[in-house]
Design a protein around this nucleic acid. Structure first.
Lengths: 130, 130
DNA sequence: TACAATTATGCAACATTGTTGCGTTTATAA
DNA sequence: TTATAAACGCAACAATGTTGCATAATTGTA
């Protein structure tokens, strides 16, 4: 069993994700760590944090991978969470909305493991501006 | 207003997408056009076909953008379609399942335009093999 | 049928995002 | 304090997507 280490860079990356309200991409996160570590290290830290179930990995409508904190998430929910994500087409920000429990009609010969629900449109902040 | 042209390459790309049962990435589509045109041209054709509403642009769970034909899609449905996509974690194929109409609880200050619903797991073909 | 207008293409070059290998550094338990 | 394995930096690479510009091809019209 691997020993998990809490390095300076890891703490910094986790802190950034925790503080931010919207989900962030690797690029945005790396821009915020202020050269505390290498670009590659950020990738590897994010990978580890996902594996340790401390953050969520969410794909944006554009195909950009984003990371968000998972505050109210038990391990159970993690495996099969009916989380809703809002992807703003204007500011490109990805926001976690709430737990929208949904009913799906999937043929029984498909083995479902996770449900990804993303809604695109204009977020409140962008609506005010325009 | 731009005049839409039906070129050889465009017809070939559209044909490939139509015939295939699962959604395909640009890479897969380009591999099938057999050097009838350039890599860049495929990108531009796909862009046009999406704009002309002849194909769907769907993001896979991994962040890979896939393209699928939209057979039973009126323009109305296109703007706000409650389409369900199944993303196989084994063979990476993306399949359009059916029209799953879902109820969502989104705060009124969000302006919704599209709903993206993707379910990951193991597809029937991969279930048989393993 | 030939021509003009403009859409579509090819090519080259670049940008972004993510991955891998390997030698070195560092955190943690003993 | 030290040994050990985790984490890191660097360089190099791979995949995917974008842009500019000169050239080719399609389509409506004369």
């Amino acid at each position: 069993m691997a020993i998990i280490r809490n390095t300076i860079a890891k703490k910094a990356v986790f802190e950034i994700i925790q503080v931010n309200k919207t989900a962030m991409s690797q690029t945005e996160i790396f821009a915020k760590v202020n050269n505390i570590c290498d670009r590659v290290t950020v990738y590897r830290i994010l990978e580890r944090l996902v594996k340790e179930m401390k953050i969520h990995k969410i794909v944006n409508v554009n195909g950009v991978i984003n990371y968000a904190p998972c505050n109210s998430c038990s391990h159970e929910q993690h495996v099969h969470h009916d989380h809703l994500h809002f992807s703003c087409t204007n500011c490109k920000k990805l926001t976690c909305i709430s737990d929208n429990h949904i009913e799906l009609n999937i043929p029984s010969n498909y083995q479902v493991s996770e449900v990804f629900l993303t809604v695109s449109g204009i977020c409140p902040e962008c609506l005010i501006i325009t």
